[in-house]
Design a protein around this nucleic acid. Sequence first.
DNA 1: AACGTGATCAACCGCTTGGTC
DNA 2: AGACCAAGCGGTTGATCACGT
Length: 299
Amino acid sequence: MGRSPCCEKEGLKKGPWTSEEDELLVKYINKHGHGNWRSLPKNAGLLRCGKSCRLRWTNYLRPDIKRGPFTPEEEKLVIQLHAILGNRWAAIAAQLPGRTDNEIKNLWNTHLRKRLICMGLDPQTHEPASTPAGPSKKPPASPSTRHMTQWESARLEAEARLSTESLVCHPHPARFLDSDYFLRLWNSEVGESFRNFDMKEKIVCQSPISQASTSTTKCASTSGLTVDNRDEEIKCKNFIKTEVLDVNTRSDSSSSNEVEDSSESALQLLLDFPGYSDMSFLEDPVDNYPDNESFFKFY
DNA sequence: AACGTGATCAACCGCTTGGTC
DNA sequence: AGACCAAGCGGTTGATCACGT
């Protein structure tokens, strides 16, 4: 039995909102809060379904919404976060105050995705698009892939370190549960694969962009991130994506403030990762990209 | 000026998730 | 345990605008 549509009631209005409707909604929410969205339209005197009201409020009318074009810094952040989080627009929006998931999704689909495609990159994986050579031929680990692995490794390490620190400093039960999660992760098969990479060597790899072309080769050979290890790398990557990055959303809001801080610290650590700081290509129009060189420079 | 085309973005649709009973 | 419901989320659509011919 399928779910009945939320707007099945006849007589409910659809389509663009009028300024009068906006005013009614804002007035009502300012006075009473949104409460139950389903009952809101009736109480506010609107001929809309609750879902439509919620969307209008969260995407447009909310007072903390930042309107206007995205700055290059915001675009840079969106690209960085997309490389880590994929199409999780709400999670990305959470890192950009005043921006909505819808807005970010639109930015991605209309601008950033095309920009990556123009540069010969797969907008989903942020790796060079596959060549006509065929799927059987395993492409060499790209600088971007290697960089992704480094980030994620760094994140995993940071999470593990922060959780250990938090255990020592704040051993109360609610915190222990979340911290324990990372410790278990650290002690798991994935943590083992991660530890097999020589972190000291990895740090050597975190060299400035200008060295990218030479250091990545060194990275691949010294850190264990060779093509042969790509399965491990992918396993690790997927696990982190599905398990580690989901912890924020799983944590309940009442006990997760400090954990959230830790995750934010780890995220910041990733965003500060050398090699992902030069996003100057964002300021150039697409037509100015003669080849992939400028892009790889930034990776 | 009229038309066609592509870009943009607000809004919708339907699936998923999480809470409650 | 599972049914039900509200809310959240991501994909998609379609109206509108901008620009080129």
